[in-house]
C-alpha cells in the first residue's frame, strides 16, 4: 500500500544507524539489542563501514585481538573521525580498554585489564549507572577491566569494589560490564536515544 509505505519512511520513523565494531568479540548480541531498541545496527569491519553512522559501539572481546584487528584493517583514523564529528561512542569491557588513553584515546582514562581476576572471578551484580538509567541493572562482568585513573572532565557513573566501572566524557561512555548479555534493553535504548539527538 503506497500510503502506508510512505508513512513508514516519514522523518519521525528514521532509525539511527549505529555501527558495532565486528573485528572480534561479543558484537552479535549488541546488534540484537540495538534492533530491539529501535536502531538500525551495522557491523563494522573496514573503514568504509563507518561512513554515515550516527553512533558506534566498541564491544567486548579480547582487547589484544581487537586492537590488532583495528590496526590490520586501518580502522583507527575512521573511528577518530567519527569521534571528532561528535558522534556518540559506547565501549563495553574490552571496548572500554580500546577507547582509553593507551589505545584509541577517545576518553581520558587508563584501565586495568582482567582487574577482578581470571574467569573464575567473573560475576554478575546489581549496580546503578548515574544519568543513564533509573534504579539498578544486572551487570555481567567477564574477566572485566576497571578504570584505574581518570583525567579531567571524566565523570564516574558507577563503582564496584571502589573502582569505577562506568565513566563518561562528552559523547563517549565506557562500561566494564556487558549490557548485551542480559535481556534488559535500557542501556541500548539510552544509547540509541543519544545517537538520535
Amino acid at each position: 500500500m503506497p500510503a502506508a509505505a510512505g508513512s513508514e519512511t516519514g522523518a519521525a520513523e528514521i532509525k539511527p544507524r549505529i555501527g558495532v565494531l565486528a573485528v572480534q568479540g561479543g558484537f552479535q548480541r549488541h546488534v540484537e539489542h540495538l534492533e530491539l531498541a529501535g536502531a538500525d545496527p551495522f557491523e563494522v569491519r573496514l573503514p568504509v563501514d563507518l561512513e554515515g553512522l550516527d553512533g558506534l559501539i566498541l564491544p567486548g572481546g579480547e582487547s589484544t585481538t581487537i586492537v590488532m584487528g583495528i590496526e590490520n584493517a586501518g580502522l583507527a583514523p575512521a573511528i577518530l573521525a567519527h569521534h571528532e564529528a561528535g558522534r556518540p561512542i559506547l565501549g563495553t569491557c574490552a571496548g572500554m580498554i580500546v577507547a582509553g588513553r593507551e589505545h584509541l584515546g577517545l576518553i581520558d582514562i587508563t584501565t586495568k585489564r582482567n582487574a577482578f581476576g581470571r574467569q573464575l572471578a567473573s560475576f554478575e551484580d546489581d549496580i546503578e549507572v548515574d544519568g543513564v538509567l533509573e534504579g539498578t541493572i544486572r551487570a555481567v562482568f567477564i574477566r572485566a577491566p576497571w578504570v584505574e585513573s581518570t583525567g579531567e572532565g571524566v565523570k564516574v557513573l558507577s563503582e564496584v569494589r571502589d573502582h569505577p566501572v562506568a565513566v563518561r566524557q562528552g559523547t563517549v561512555t565506557a562500561l566494564s560490564f556487558h549490557p548485551e548479555l542480559t535481556p534488559d534493553n535500557r542501556i541500548h535504548k539510552w544509547f540509541t536515544g543519544a545517537c538520535t539527538a
Binding site: 565486528a22 573485528v23 572480534q24 568479540g25 561479543g26 558484537f27 552479535q28 548480541r29 567486548g60 572481546g61 579480547e62 585481538t65 569491557c93 574490552a94 574467569q119 573464575l120 572471578a121 567473573s122 560475576f123 554478575e124 551484580d125 546489581d126 555481567v140 567477564i142 574477566r143 556487558h178 548479555l181 542480559t182
Partner: peptide, 21 residues
Amino acid sequence: MAEEATFRVKTGLAEMLKGGV
C-alpha cells in the same frame, strides 16, 4: 547480590571469544 559462575557468566566468556581464533 553478586553471583559468580552463573550459566550467564560461563557462556559470557564464550560470547567474548566469538569471531576469534
